[in-house]
Simulated scan of single mutants.
Amino acid sequence: MYGTARRHRHAAFSAAVVAALLTLTACAGDTDGDDGTTSGGPSTVSPSPSTSAAPSPSAGATDSPSGTTDDDGSTSVPPFPANTDPDTAEPSAGAALTVTDVRVGRHDGFDRVVFELGGTGTPGWRVEYVPEAIEDGKGDVIDVDGDGTLQVMISGSGYPMDTGVAEYAGPNPLRVAETDEVEEVVLRGVFEGNTQAFIGTDEVSPFRVYALTDPTRVVVEVRNDDT
C-alpha cells in the first residue's frame, strides 16, 4: 500500500514538471516584434521567403546594388551608360552634409566607390572625367594614380562646424589592391558648398552615379569591360 501510494505521488509530480516545462517552452517562442526576435531565447518563427523585386541598391562595406546587404530600396540602380558623359544631380534645398566615410570595393564587372555622408538633406553631384586633378579654390594640381581621373563634386555639402558632423579621417588617398578599374580615391575639402574628390581609374571607362539613404550615400561605379 505504502509503495503503491508513493509511486502514484511520484508519477503525479513528474507529470506536473513536464507540464510546466511545456508551458515555458511555448512562452519562449513568443515574438516581440515583426522581425521574429524573441525575448529570452532563440526564435522559433520560420523566416518568410523573400519576394522578388527589381534590383535595389544597398549599403555596407561593398554597398551592393543586388539587394543582398542592407536592402533599403531607396532608388533604382541606373544602367551603365555606353559613354563617359558627365553625370549630374541637384541637392535638396538647404542640404548641409559632410563626408564621414569613403569605401572602395571590387564587384563583378565594375568597381564601386561609396561616399557616406551625415547631416541634413539629400546630396547632389557632378561627376566627370577631367584632364587633370585641380583642387577647387586653390588651383593646385593633385597627383592621382591612373590613366583616367574622375572628378566627384558632391553638392549640398557643409563644413563640419556647420553640419555638426565629424568629417572622414581615414586613409587619404584610399587604395584597394583587389580592384580592377579604380586605382585610388583622393578626398579633398569643401569649397562653396561642394565636397571635391578624385577617383583615379585604370582607363577612361563608363561610369554611373546614384544616391542611397539610411545612411545617406553617393555611389560611383566604374565599369570594367575586361571581365
Rank of each mutant, 00 (worst) to 15 (best):
G3F: 10
T4R: 14
R6N: 11
H10V: 12
A11T: 07
F13I: 13
L21M: 13
T23W: 12
T25G: 10
T25Q: 10
A26E: 14
A26Y: 13
C27H: 02
C27P: 00
A28G: 13
T31L: 11
T31R: 13
D32E: 12
D32A: 09
G33V: 07
D34Y: 01
D35G: 05
T37S: 15
S43Q: 04
V45W: 06
V45C: 02
S46N: 10
P49T: 05
T51C: 00
T51M: 01
A53N: 06
A53Y: 04
A54V: 10
P57E: 09
S58R: 04
A59T: 12
A61N: 04
A61Q: 03
S64Y: 06
P65W: 09
S66C: 15
G67M: 03
G67T: 06
T69Q: 10
D70P: 00
D71H: 11
D71C: 12
D72P: 03
T75P: 00
F80R: 05
P81T: 05
D85Q: 13
P86Y: 05
D87F: 01
D87K: 15
T88K: 13
A89Q: 11
A89W: 00
E90L: 14
E90A: 15
S92K: 10
S92C: 08
S92R: 10
A93G: 12
A95N: 10
A95V: 13
L97K: 12
T98H: 08
D101M: 06
D101V: 00
V102D: 01
V102L: 01
R103W: 02
R103M: 10
V104Y: 00
V104L: 10
V104H: 00
R106C: 01
H107A: 15
D108K: 09
D108H: 09
D108M: 09
G109Y: 03
D111P: 08
R112C: 11
R112A: 08
F115V: 04
E116V: 06
T120W: 00
G121Q: 06
G121D: 04
P123T: 08
W125E: 03
E128G: 06
Y129C: 06
V130Q: 07
P131N: 09
I134P: 01
D136A: 13
D136V: 04
D136Y: 04
G137Q: 08
G137A: 03
D140Q: 09
V141N: 02
T149A: 03
T149R: 12
L150T: 00
M153A: 15
M153C: 05
M153W: 08
I154H: 02
S155P: 03
G156T: 06
G156S: 06
G158Q: 03
Y159R: 14
Y159V: 05
P160K: 12
G164S: 02
V165R: 09
V165A: 04
E167C: 01
A169W: 00
A169M: 03
P171A: 03
N172K: 02
N172E: 06
L174R: 14
R175T: 14
A177K: 11
E178R: 09
D180F: 01
V182T: 11
V186T: 11
R188G: 04
V190T: 13
G193F: 11
Q196L: 02
A197I: 01
F198N: 09
D202V: 08
V204P: 01
V204Y: 00
S205H: 09
F207A: 04
R208D: 12
Y210W: 15
Y210T: 11
A211G: 09
L212M: 15
L212H: 00
T216M: 14
T216G: 07
R217Y: 02
V218F: 01
R223M: 15
R223L: 14
D225A: 13
T227S: 08
